[in-house]
Write a protein that binds this DNA or RNA. Structure first.
Length: 202
DNA sequence: GAACCGATTGCCT
DNA sequence: GGCAATCGGTTCG
């Protein structure tokens, strides 16, 4: 365990784009099957409120998207493409929609356990293949054992906490357009750490 | 109740 | 680089 500062709900209760930027370099801590997992956030995307046509919240609250309209510091985990779960953190004050999608992380602790959750044989796991574990939004949820049961839950340990990192200040931030969407493709709402090999698509 | 589609991944060429 | 897999959410009739 670490003595680094766990980010409070007030960190998330702010402008979504700002939170997406500041989350780069922070760490996610989680306990899965009695093992601790620790990762560094290297890629995020901002999904805004009703003015963002690429966001689930763009047409007002629905049974799925209502979490985005709720209080900040809550997990928004949803199912997509018949196979995958994607992890988001809800932002902005209650009543205003917003969330930050976690698109890629760098494994720090519990790497063997994450590889196992991804179905990768750790004995065959070469340094070259390490990036395959968490270099994508659905890969990282598989590697961290995240599924729909966490949707709507408050951030917090042991299930999932976000903390500051002593190496955060070292990273250089790149700002670009979001991936996998068909609307508002021109908006610069994707952020990642420059030259980090765990980023989903450089 | 039916049709359409998606904030992806992994396998195939 | 292209594309199938796969199914819940959303929309429309």
């Amino acid at each position: 365990m670490s003595s680094k500062k766990i980010l409070p709900a007030s960190f998330f209760e702010r402008n979504t784009t700002q939170v997406a930027k500041e989350l780069i370099g922070c760490e996610i801590l989680r306990k899965v099957n009695k093992y601790w997992i620790r990762v560094r956030i290297v890629e995020t995307e901002a999904y805004l409120g009703e003015g963002d046509p690429a966001s689930h919240s763009s047409r007002g609250p629905t049974p799925r998207s209502k979490v985005m309209f709720g209080p900040a510091g809550v997990l928004y985990v949803y199912f997509i493409y018949g196979n995958y779960f994607l992890l988001n953190f809800v932002t902005e004050k209650k009543g205003k929609a917003g969330a930050v999608l976690i698109r890629a992380v760098e494994p720090l602790d519990g790497i063997a356990h994450m590889a196992e959750l991804r179905g990768i044989n750790t004995k065959l796991l070469s340094q070259c293949d390490l990036y395959k574990i968490t270099s994508g939004p659905a890969k990282l949820t598989m590697a961290m054992g995240i599924n729909g049961t966490l949707n709507g839950k408050k951030l917090g340990l042991p299930h999932l906490g976000v903390q500051e990192s002593s190496t955060k200040s070292v990273c250089e931030l790149i700002e670009t357009t979001r991936i996998g969407i068909s609307a508002a493709q021109e908006l610069p709402l994707r952020f990642y750490e420059k030259e980090n090999p765990f980023v989903s698509k450089l």
